[in-house]
Design a protein around this nucleic acid. Structure first.
Length: 271
DNA sequence: GAACCATTAAACACTG
DNA sequence: GCAGTGTTTAATGGTT
């Protein structure tokens, strides 16, 4: 039926500038973005992770989390990090929270993630230390976070590849010599499109909280008590954060909270 | 209803 | 030759 952007043979012949414009409009549509929202907004800088260790418990992460929170979740507009999708009543939380990600299959295996493939790929790539991933790693990341795909028909991998090839947001990068051998190239996010992808992500039902979720490396790092989770969620629902609010300690707590909540929202959605 | 977009499926070429 | 990867085309359904 409708033409798919970028599929025509002329795609390769397009000027880079023209591609960017077309891609931007596509992204804006995808995330239902308000026009010119990025014009007045400083380009967000995602986590600058040089570390190969992306565990939340890593001290490097603590440092990075400040940047992450500052740049990603809390712009100058003071965006609330929580979308009030539901009202949590204290002890209702435990049945949904921790068990949800400890064994996601039980809750979410049948529910398709509310993210487009473009966003899933974007999340996977951004979550990687080098901001570049081979297709295989993108598969893995998606599988890890969204068990739905473990049981989904295998066509989703084709869709991922299709998106990578088609979507102008993603750039293919040849593997450097000396790196790990393997088929295919690395895929990165075009920096020019990052703000737009992030905006699109924010427009998703569960905001962006799931973006940088890493499964807990240890029980300690990943399991906030349901009661604590509940209380923090309640606080966040009425709290609007600004850059000045954040120090390293609160950054860690808040990101943990965001992660937990992202999973929580996803699980609630999945039911 | 039309246009646009995401998703899915399929075919094919290329590469390790 | 096989499996994985990358590209392209086409069809379908949902949203605006």
């Amino acid at each position: 039926m409708g033409p798919v952007i970028g599929m025509t043979p002329e795609k390769r012949a397009e000027t880079p500038g023209a591609e960017k414009v077309a891609g931007l409009s596509q992204i804006y549509k995808m995330g239902s973005l308000p026009e010119a929202v990025d014009a007045a907004r400083p380009k967000a800088t995602l986590v600058d992770s040089e570390s190969a260790d992306d565990e939340l418990t890593n001290l490097n992460w603590l440092h990075e989390s400040t940047n992450l929170l500052t740049n990603f979740s809390f712009g100058s507009e003071g965006l609330p990090i929580v979308s009030p999708l539901y009202d949590i009543e204290g002890d209702d939380v435990p049945s949904l929270g921790p068990s949800c990600y400890q064994n996601p299959e039980k809750k979410s295996a049948t529910a398709k993630p509310p993210y487009s493939f473009s966003l899933l790929i974007y999340m996977a790539i951004e979550h990687s230390p080098n901001k570049c991933l081979p297709v295989k790693e993108i598969y893995s990341w998606i599988l890890d976070r969204f068990p739905y795909f473990a049981t989904a028909p295998t066509g989703w991998k084709n869709s991922v590849r299709h998106n990578l090839s088609l979507n102008k947001c993603f750039q293919k990068v040849e593997r450097s010599h000396g790196k790990v051998n393997g088929k295919g190239s690395l895929w990165c996010v075009d920096p020019e499109y990052k703000p737009n992808l992030m905006q699109a992500l924010k427009k998703q039902p569960f905001s962006s909280t799931l973006t940088f979720y890493t499964p807990p490396a240890s029980p300690q790092s990943g399991s906030l008590s349901p009661h604590f989770l509940s209380s923090v969620l309640k606080q966040n629902q009425v709290r609007t954060l600004k850059e000045s609010d954040i120090d390293a300690a609160t950054a860690m707590m808040l990101l943990n909270t965001s992660i937990e909540q992202g999973i929580l929202e996803y699980c609630i959605y999945s039911q």
